[in-house]
Amino acid sequence: MSDSSSKTPQNPPTPGGESQPTTGQYKPDMLDARPVKPSKLGYNIALLVLGIVFIAAISATGADWGRLVQLPGNMVNYFTLMGQGVAQPLTAEVQQHWLSAFDNMLESVQIAWIGTVVGALFSLPMGFLAARNMTPLPLYVVVRFILSVIRAVPEIVFAIAIMLPIFGLGPLAGALALGISSIGTLSKLISEAIEGVDQGPLESARASGATQVQMIRWAVLPQIMPEVIAIWLYRFEVNIRASAILGVLGAGGIGSLLSALFGVRAWDRIGITLVVIVVVTIIIDQISAWIRHRVIHGAPKKEARAARERDDSDGVGVPPAGAHPI
């Protein structure tokens, strides 16, 4: 190490230069020593604390870890039963099982969609009210607080506390509960998109004497719309999973079917239902991901240039430079 560094010329005159022996023996001084590795003490302490918390948590759960021993056997057992259920020949009865699973899954998708639409309708205005650059401070603080409370409350709470008493057990109550709880996340993400808009169009709109509404319409909406649509679609994917949760309470859809099937341990039908859930969810995720990508990144490569020219003065189709997929 030292022989290689002795060949390199020292550009800046070092303060301790006089102590440097001139007889060929090179002694590195402060300035050309290798940089010292920064201390990892804080990092290590954090890791240690994490480890302690983890071990304490393992003992605090009071879980019976011995039961893990019998899990693999049970799993093989039940998965075989489920597999047999999926693979059994399509008699009229089995066909009925597949159809009822599919119908229930579609109902879950409907619940999720209506919930997302309800949330989306409220989230755009709420997003503007929760964006610091669009709203006076007092209103902003109030709206932000309401949103963070909505986000903290799980959707199941809305379902039990507000929707079930009034709307009764059913898909409608589930959809409205999802809708209300969607407002929190959607508005927060949208408000962040609004706060991140490019200031240029806003300034030019203001300079040309635009009113607040005109500024929103011509300077803000065109910039955020692709991102907003992506946020809505993303929430739709989340809501499909959440609607299963509400189904267990009796809000209909795939959750109700699943909990009924688990109640009677009908493993063959459980297998069929799980396959339907996986397939439908993956298909919808793929479609949604494709639309999100298309909306944010615009048309595929060869059309992109033409599309940009076409959409130039309108702006609705032009993705913001900083847009990122969620």
Partner: peptide, 12 residues
């Protein structure tokens, strides 16, 4: 596949 099954499904 893991992601497409909701948490409640795993719970059940």
């Amino acid at each position: 596949v893991i992601r497409s099954i909701p948490d409640i499904g795993y719970g059940l």
